[in-house]
Structures are given as C-alpha cells and as structure tokens.
C-alpha cells in the first residue's frame, strides 16, 4: 500500500489502512517518544496515544502533507504534553543509571558488550550522554534527535514540527552547543557571542 492508498484508506475508515499505518510507523513513533520521554514504558504509552489520536482525528490530516511528518508532529506534541504532566523534571541520574544497568543485564539488543571493562566504559559513556541530553530542552532535543538519529533533513524537521527552518537551525545549534559543553568539548559560539 503506497502513501496515497494509505491516506485514501484512512479517509474511508478502512481498518486495514489503520493497521498498515501502525505497522509502518510504530518504530519511528516509539523511538521519538523514547528519545523525548527517556524510558520505554512512557514511550509505549505515548506512542499508543499517538495512534489513538490519529485514529480519532484523521479527518484533521491536511491533504498534500506527508503522513510521516504529521506523525512526528503528533508524537512531538504528545511527548511535550507527557513531559508537562510529569512536571518536566529531568529524570534523576540514579534512575537512568539503574535503567541502563538493568538493560545491560537483561541481554537485550543494544546492551553493552560482554567484556567487563568495555561494558563499564560503554555504561559510563551512556550515562554521560544521558546527562548531557537532560540539559537540552525538549524542542532542542526533538530537533537534534530527528536530525542526528532519524536522518531527517532540516526542512523535513521544520515541516514535521511546524517550525520555520530558521528556528530548526537555531534549536539544532543550541542543542549541539549544550552537548559540547556537557561532554567537555569547547562550545560552539558565534563570532559575535550569540548563541544561535
């Protein structure tokens, strides 16, 4: 089923189209929610919210838009809502350390290597990165994640999140600058001293 057929099916209320949409986009939606919320339980909850919302309000989908972009936007908004409800408090470092440890112990894919020294190093790196990401605002994080991990072009990120291309560049610049600072690298500052 191509994109047009999917949109047509969703508009008609064809349940096969909805199933297809979920199967096709569940990973993208889940991973963005995971990046934003920081833990797998919330990520699944948010991703389900997203699909429920899509199911209920597909009539608001703008003709000519891309489903993927629209889903990113719905996911982004759902994640922001979730963070607000949670009080936008960054997760305590101890919890993220515990979580990364338990993931490492569980033997899940993406877990740390079996060599203890390499495992410890990998775990430390993950903690450093998680701590650095905690310093980045949700908007900056969303832009950075979509560019760095999902390989979306800046213009596509702008379309997905409903931002101007200038704002997207600005958020990306700020995110990278904060990450550099937190990870112990020299900050990237414009010549006139502005944070872009």
């Amino acid at each position: 089923m191509d994109e047009n057929a999917l949109i047509e099916g969703m508009t008609r209320g064809d349940p096969r189209a909805f199933r297809e949409l979920v199967e096709r986009y569940k990973k993208k939606v889940y991973y963005l929610a995971l990046d934003m919320a920081g833990n797998p339980i919330d990520a699944e909850d948010i991703s389900q919210e997203v699909f429920l919302k899509v199911y209920r309000s597909f009539s608001t989908f703008r003709k000519g838009a891309k489903i993927g972009s629209w889903l990113y936007r719905v996911t982004y908004n759902a994640s922001i809502d979730h963070l607000r409800k949670r009080g936008a408090a960054p997760e305590p470092v101890e919890d993220s350390v515990l979580e990364s440890r338990s993931q490492a112990d569980s033997g899940l894919p993406g877990a740390v290597p079996s060599d203890p020294a390499a495992a410890a190093e990998s775990s430390q790196l993950r903690d450093r990165i998680d701590r650095a990401l905690d310093k980045v605002s949700p908007q900056e994080k969303a832009v950075f994640m979509l560019r760095h991990y999902d390989d979306l072009m800046l213009k596509d990120i702008a379309e997905s999140l409903g931002l101007s291309i200038g704002s997207v560049k600005s958020y990306l610049f700020r995110a990278v600058r904060k990450l550099q600072k937190e990870l112990g690298r020299p900050a990237l500052i414009s010549g006139n001293g502005d944070i872009r």
Partner: peptide
Amino acid sequence: AALRSTLGLMDGRERTDPGAEFWDGYW
C-alpha cells in the same frame, strides 16, 4: 574537529531496541 568529536560521541548512543516480541505484540 571538536564538533565532529562531540557528534561522533553521540553516535555511540544506541536506542535500546525492545525486541521482536515487543514489536510483534504491539498491535
């Protein structure tokens, strides 16, 4: 070089895949 180093470090962050069972039961 510093920028590349930071972003290279970020490449080391992997998203934990919840596994085939999770995805199979998602629907």
